[in-house]
Amino acid sequence: MHIPENYLSPSTCVVFTAAMLPIWYSAAKSVKRELPKEKIAMIGVGAAFSFIGMMFNVPLPGGTTGHAVGATLIATLLGPEAACLAVSVALLLQALLFGDGGILSFGANCFNMAFAAPFIGYFIYRLMLKALSKGGDVKVQHRLLSAALSSYVGINVAALLAAIEFGVQPYLFHNAAGQALYCPYGLNISIPSMMIGHLTIFGLAEVVFTVAILAFISKTAPAFLKENMEEKAGKKQLLPVGILLAVLTVLVPLGLLAEGTAWGEWGADEIAEVVSGGQKLGYTPNGLENGFQFNSLIPDYSLESVGIPEVAGYIISAVIGISVLVILFRIISSFKTKKD
């Protein structure tokens, strides 16, 4: 679901970045106003879960792959505004350091995964939780069932938005010969290609990821839950969450078992040979071939260029990502004072 560089026109990227600016500003103000210092630091843990969840690629018959995002998970724990900031920073780190998602398309990726997914997911979560807990008694099973449905809807809304953003490109931007300049697949191909996987396997992966982690945290670290706003997470609660992140880090090479490339994330050197919609494209869109290029430090989470095996490089990338996110939000939380 990460839209790569040059699949969207520069003007499209500008529109989505401009749309995200007031959203980021509002989310930051809300988090600063509503969350205590300790909870702001916990946003880094939420971002870490999102980051590592996106490294667990899941295969789909036909050669494509996808992954969970964890946006609704963070929204249920800390609120949609915190989720917006957490996923946005995780996406920025992925784009800058690992080349996962484009720099120019960062705003569009955030609009889909850091705005639409957590806010719509959280709205449905609260609506369903209220319906299930008519007597005011919120039970764990109510929370988990609500999280399951809301996370499924959230990731599919994000996927649909990405499919539309892909699909309108050839209608709006093409050369005199009718060849697309950026994404070459119209809505008739982009929507079913994106949605079949997300309505089935990838949506299920999001549900499992969300419910499993939410159930674990609800039992071992309830201070992470939004309703326990003023409760501090002591070492007894931080430890199991840290252990869970460590276990997921060790298991993250399972994401390498998924063969193929996610739909819409092909390189300029391979898209001409891609068969989508039943036929080979046969050309390379000019925008993809001659567009903006950015060389990330650890492309594709791989350190094989420096002699580190693929599996070890993937684990090291996960450790780097988690560490940066946790430390960054801890530093940000340090600026909050009692007067804020």
Rank of each mutant, 00 (worst) to 15 (best):
F49G: 00
V87H: 10
T72P: 00
A268C: 07
L144N: 03
S218N: 14
C183I: 00
A47W: 06
P61D: 10
M194Y: 10
P309I: 14
T72I: 11
F173D: 04
L281M: 08
D300V: 09
Y182E: 07
G282Q: 05
P36K: 04
G178H: 09
L97W: 04
S9G: 11
T284E: 01
F335S: 12
P61Y: 08
A68N: 10
A246L: 15
E270V: 14
A48K: 01
M54G: 08
S276Y: 09
P240F: 04
L238G: 11
T220N: 13
P170N: 04
A272W: 03
I189G: 02
Q169M: 14
F16K: 02
G154Q: 12
D100R: 05
I331S: 01
F16R: 03
Y301W: 02
Q237M: 14
I217S: 06
Y25M: 13
N286C: 02
K236Y: 01
G255N: 08
F292A: 14
W24M: 15
V168H: 11
V275A: 13
L35A: 12
A82R: 04
A268W: 07
Y122P: 07
K134H: 13
C110Q: 05
I332E: 02
L77H: 02
T72E: 07
N295T: 14
L145G: 13
E227M: 06
K37R: 15
E231F: 03
I164C: 13
A18C: 14
G107L: 11
V15K: 12
L161P: 03
V306R: 07
S276T: 13
K338R: 10
H67S: 09
L161E: 05
A90H: 02
N295I: 12
G234W: 08
L85H: 00
V69S: 11
A116M: 08
S333T: 02
I322M: 14
Q179V: 03
A223L: 04
L288P: 05
I327F: 15
E289H: 05
V14Y: 09
A272P: 09
L303Q: 11
T72F: 06
G53S: 01
I332R: 03
E227C: 09
F173W: 15
P170Q: 09
K29S: 13
C183D: 01
T220L: 12
A312C: 11
P22E: 04
G203A: 05
F106I: 12
H2K: 11
E227H: 12
L145A: 12
S150V: 11
C84Y: 08
A108D: 00
R126A: 06
F56Q: 09
S88D: 00
C183M: 11
A47L: 01
A223S: 15
T220I: 05
L181M: 14
K130Q: 15
L8R: 02
L8G: 10
V326I: 15
V89Y: 07
A246P: 09
G136V: 12
A68M: 09
E273A: 15
F123Q: 08
I213M: 04
S334I: 12
I40Y: 02
M1D: 06
L145W: 07
F335R: 15
A41G: 13
